Amino acid sequence: MTSPTPSPLRVAVIGAGAVGCFYGGMLARAGHAVTLIGRAQHVQVFERDGLRMQTLSFDEQVPVAASTEAAAVAGADVVLFAVKSPDTEATGEQMRPHLKAGGLVLCLQNGVDNAERLRAVLPDVDVAAAVVYVATEMAGPGHLRHHGRGELVIEPTAGSARLVQALMAAGVPTEISDNVRGSLWVKLILNCAYNALCALGKLPYGPLVERPGVREVMADVVAECRAVAAADGLTLPGDVDLAVRRIAETMPTQHSSTAQDLMRGKPTEIDHLNGYVMRRGAALGVPTPANRVLWTLVKLTEPEGPR
């Protein structure tokens, strides 16, 4: 086990699914006081047995506190905000009366505008965006399965440095970047390239890219995303094409969050992935036909009902 940092944090994870449970669990394992806030089926198991973390390097039951209520963020030094993108504003409103003065809210979400949307409903709160590179799933109630990676890139805010120290000590590779917006766009491009195709093909990333035509479609999607980002004045850090290839190499057994949502009969975040690129492209005069087709096909596959 990793050693606790000298000053343990009180951490709340709101939206304790696969991503939130991984980072909350790593902090809990390192000695921080972590409360997982999520669905009743998971909370019941967390309260009874703790969080089962089945990772590439260990398989343990990690003791945590748990709740189904947003009010459980009370007293937290750090809130890991991991709800689905369509729920950002509503969840922010629910937890606003309970947030600790001077605390940090870290967005661990897909999409590029969640931190901005959250700041609009939490104007007096330290909100930081983060780019998440981790392959995880909830394999059952209270059971996290980790398929690979786990890095975070966090924007600098008042509370970022202390959290980065805690994450690094907990075994989570973390860096602070002045270009998180660019990094979020690179992550958006990765999601646009993989998520819909993985969901529609019902294949994990490794086998997916070996199917005929997939790499070519992904290249079309990436080219459109690049064009929209350029029109929006963004600088994309690193080698985007290499980052796209590395996803299949480093997470070959992972199913995308979009695929996991559809397998569970839930709405997806596609409006905030390919749908976001499509809308931003329309606003900037950049055609995005490949992204539009993937967005449309996923929307046709989603369960009917209110969003």
Rank of each mutant, 00 (worst) to 15 (best):
H146K: 08
V244P: 11
G213Q: 07
D126G: 00
V125W: 02
A231N: 13
P237H: 05
G111A: 15
S183Y: 06
A229G: 13
T157P: 01
V214T: 14
A199I: 05
L242S: 14
A219C: 09
I189H: 03
G201Y: 07
V132W: 07
A169K: 10
A120V: 06
V222Q: 06
A161F: 00
V127D: 07
S183R: 15
E216C: 08
L197D: 09
P252G: 08
Q165A: 14
Q109K: 12
P207C: 03
R226M: 08
M138T: 12
P212M: 10
P204H: 05
L200P: 04
L122M: 10
L118K: 06
E151V: 00
L208F: 12
V121R: 10
A130G: 06
A139G: 15
A129T: 06
T235L: 10
E116Y: 00
P207E: 04
Q109I: 11
M138A: 11
K187G: 08
S160P: 02
A130C: 05
T157S: 10
A248F: 02
A169R: 15
L203M: 09
A231H: 13
A243W: 03
V244Y: 14
G142H: 11
V221C: 04
G182W: 11
M168C: 02
Q254S: 11
G148F: 04
V112D: 01
R145V: 06
P204F: 00
T136W: 06
P156Q: 11
C192S: 15
K202R: 14
A223L: 14
I176H: 06
V209M: 02
A166R: 04
E155S: 05
